[in-house]
């Protein structure tokens, strides 16, 4: 590698780094520095309302997490939320991608419709589902009543379990398109000859799916799993608007708890510690992601 690099014209190296310099400066200043600084803040007692009390406390904020009921509960809510959102998203996205991979009339229209939730800001997504799930006037109640499926209007969001389930559903609607697009791109790389061969062998639809489609989809599926895990783990906008974390702390995910800690209680020290736990978990996932890209040899530069 090094020997190869020596023989390259020196100009390219200098030029390339010069071209990257502006981007590197922005990224360093606005991401690398803040993330290092946030670790520093997480080691302090740091509350904006009591600036004089700011003090270095070492790992105390992290130690406090272990017995912090709000934190432990949020971690549990987040984990369950990720599992539910991920499971639903992957299954729905796989089916929709398989449908879109076929030729039929209206395919283009369906693809355009699939982009609709992707274009929607998370806040608007929250507003939208709020009006739909509303206990007194919501569209869901109206629809189910008119179809005769329920006897009377239900308050979907007042029980903890209900709020959790419906928040997950709202989140799935929003993140579905991304997974669909990635899976669809994966499907389109499967050579048609493979299907032809399978058809000659008289393999049925299910066997074709298991033996031809799935192996080819493994890589895009893993990528969807990783990216959607991160998305669901950080989910904030929709939940904030739809339930605000309630009732109680039934939908208070770790991201929501962090924002409450910082915005409402201005506890920057503890908030930074929360943020670092989120970062650590996210980084673990992304290491897996990048390792995966490397191993599949898709990382040509």
């Amino acid at each position: 590698m090094a020997a190869l690099a020596e023989r390259r014209p020196l100009g390219d190296n200098a030029k390339a780094w010069a071209l990257n310099a502006p981007a590197i400066i922005v990224v360093t200043l606005l991401i690398a520095y803040p993330i290092a600084y946030s670790f520093w803040v997480s080691l302090q007692r740091h509350n904006l309302k009591r600036p004089r009390a700011t003090k270095f406390v070492g790992l105390d904020n992290y130690g406090a997490l272990l017995s912090d009921q709000a934190f432990l509960s949020a971690l549990k809510v987040s984990a369950l939320f990720v599992l539910l959102v991920l499971g639903l998203t992957v299954v729905l996205a796989l089916i929709l991608a398989l449908v879109l991979n076929e030729r039929f009339r209206g395919r283009g229209l369906l693809l355009s419709l699939a982009l609709l939730p992707w274009a929607m800001p998370g806040v608007v997504n929250g507003l939208m589902w709020r009006t739909i799930f509303d206990a007194k006037t919501g569209a869901l109640n109206g629809l189910l009543t008119q179809l005769g499926l329920i006897d009377g209007y239900q308050a979907w969001l007042t029980s903890g379990t209900g709020a959790f389930l419906f928040t997950a559903l709202a989140q799935v609607w929003n993140t579905l398109p991304f997974a669909v697009i990635i899976l669809l791109a994966g499907l389109s790389t499967i050579p048609a000859e493979l299907y032809d061969a399978a058809t000659v062998d008289r393999a049925g639809g299910l066997r074709r799916f298991v033996h031809v489609t799935l192996p080819w989809l493994l890589h895009p599926l893993l990528i969807v799993l990783i990216l959607e895990t991160m998305n669901a783990f950080r989910a904030f906008d929709t939940i904030y608007v739809l339930t605000g974390g309630g009732p109680g702390d039934a939908t208070t995910t770790i991201a929501l708890l962090d924002v409450q800690t910082v915005l409402t209680f201005t506890d920057f020290g503890l908030g930074s510690a929360y943020a670092w736990v989120i970062t650590a978990i996210t980084l673990l996932i992304s290491v897996g992601y990048i390792g995966l890209l490397y191993r599949k040899g898709n990382f040509e530069v």
Partner: peptide
Amino acid sequence: KFRGSQVLLVLYLLTRMVPGIAIIIP
């Protein structure tokens, strides 16, 4: 073709993975 291009690309990708919440306070 330049030295460090792979590393730099991965670093760019890594910054995309940093959750917004982690840098919001600083």
